[in-house]
């Protein structure tokens, strides 16, 4: 590579990294979850999202992040549902390394996964995965959650404090 060409490449590489960081992308690390209109779990759902989805971070407030999907939908997610890609750079700082490592692996690598579970199940018939599947299927609806909170004067419906 001639020198000017290499210089151009290096400048382009730096620019690419910085543009990428400025955009502040967050990645969903939860199997499936919802994007909500406001930063609270009782807010209306505006979109369904899944593990690996890249979202543009717009704002952060009280443990919630406001994001925009590739389709242009804007909504709020709890910060524990996403991780910042920016941590990749901060991994250079030793104190941040743990988070960065776990994050990168979460999105890219193999590990204890479905393939391992299937192999384990094949040799351990006593482990009752069918019961676990049934347990996972029980998911209260937003309407059930709201009714329970209202009736019991919990959360934003409280006032007995």
């Amino acid at each position: 590579m001639k020198k000017p060409a290499r210089l151009t490449f290096l400048i382009a590489a730096v620019l690419a990294v910085f543009v990428f960081l400025l955009a502040e992308t967050v990645v969903v690390k939860i199997k499936t979850t919802s994007l909500r209109r406001d930063p609270k779990f009782t807010a209306p759902i505006v979109a369904a999202i899944k593990a690996g989805d890249s979202l543009e971070k717009l704002e952060a407030r009280d443990g919630w992040v406001k994001v925009k999907t590739k389709a242009g939908v804007v909504g709020w997610l709890h910060s524990t549902a996403v991780e910042s890609k920016k941590l990749g750079l901060l991994a250079m700082d030793k104190t941040m390394k743990t988070q960065a490592s776990a994050g990168e692996v979460a999105l890219a690598a193999k590990g204890f996964n479905k393939q391992v579970e299937d192999k384990y199940r094949a040799g351990n018939a006593a482990a009752d995965f069918a019961a676990v599947d049934a347990m996972e299927k029980v998911r209260p609806t937003p309407a059930e959650v709201e009714a329970f909170m209202k009736e019991g004067k919990l959360g934003e419906f409280g006032g007995s404090r």
Binding site: K29, I30, A109, F112, V116
Partner: peptide
Amino acid sequence: AEITEEEEYYI
């Protein structure tokens, strides 16, 4: 601390 969320789920 570096066990991923997905691995934690399978465990």
